[in-house]
């Protein structure tokens, strides 16, 4: 391994320290994603050459800066992923992605055996939900690990969580309304059917009302699902924006 451990200028962290810190900051991401990033930066510093390592590290900025960019981009892609796939016509994208990521842990272990093979590599697997609440979580972790001053980061996280609670509350209430509408519809129809022999006109009236209620309820389900998706997406994009802007300023 051609890894010189040269003395660093004061205040400047060395390569191993950089990679260790970067790995820690990226913790919220799926393990393959972390390995890929670590392998990239390890190779990058190899290619910068032993003589330029300190300069290259200084130009890179802090591990927090580097991590903020990676996390923000990952989160944005995660919530926008589906539309991007559609636009490019890549239906088998997950397949290729899986193929790529399986080759990485091996690489990562090979290139940076000393620093890269941490407990993260044994975690394995991809993030569970694409573009869901897990992405919000990644953003929250990213903000807390970001180069933003901690009070500001906490404020940003609180705002994001407050927005999330609002979205969830609205979604929950709409969902309840939808359930009630569908239920009312069913009751109304059965009431109508109960008097089908005695009073057919009433049956028709109740059944009609019931069907309208059910249709409204089902439509409300769809609207609720769409709102939930858009709400979470908006929160993630907002969070990524905060993360990225702050991450890029230094």
């Amino acid at each position: 391994m051609d890894r010189p451990t040269q003395g660093q200028a004061d205040g400047q962290i060395g390569r191993d320290e950089f990679l260790t810190q970067l790995e820690r900051k990226l913790k919220g991401l799926p393990a393959p994603e972390v390995q890929y990033a670590l392998a990239y930066w390890n190779e990058y510093l190899d290619d910068a050459g032993p003589g330029n390592e300190a300069t290259a590290l200084a130009a890179l900025g802090s591990p927090a800066d580097v991590a903020a960019n990676i996390i923000a981009d990952y989160a944005v892609r995660d919530v926008k992923g589906q539309t991007v796939d559609d636009a490019t016509g890549f239906t088998g994208l997950d397949g290729t992605d899986g193929a790529v990521s399986t080759s990485i842990p091996a690489d990562g272990a090979d290139v940076g055996a000393a620093t890269v093979s941490g407990p993260a590599s044994s975690a394995g697997g991809r993030g569970s939900g694409r573009g869901g609440l897990s992405t919000v979580w990644i953003i929250v972790l990213g903000l807390l690990a970001s180069p933003i001053a901690l009070p500001l980061a906490v404020a940003a996280v609180v705002v994001l969580i407050a927005l999330l609670v609002v979205v969830l509350a609205v979604v929950a209430s709409l969902f309840c309304s939808a359930v009630v509408l569908v239920g009312t519809g069913l009751i109304s129809i059965s009431m109508g059917l109960a008097v089908v022999v005695r009073d057919f006109a009433t049956t028709l009236l109740y059944a009609g009302l019931g069907l309208v209620c059910m249709a409204g309820g089902l439509a409300l389900f769809l609207i609720t699902a769409w709102l939930a998706k858009m709400g979470v997406r908006g929160i993630v994009l907002l969070g990524a924006r905060i993360l990225k802007r702050k991450g890029a300023t230094s």
Partner: peptide, 22 residues
């Protein structure tokens, strides 16, 4: 900055615009 290029490369690769080999 160097740190903004890595996410771009990763995204372009995931979107199938770039391929990699070692």
């Amino acid at each position: 900055s160097e740190s903004t290029l890595y996410p771009i490369l990763r995204r372009l690769q995931k979107d199938g615009f770039l391929a990699t080999y070692d």
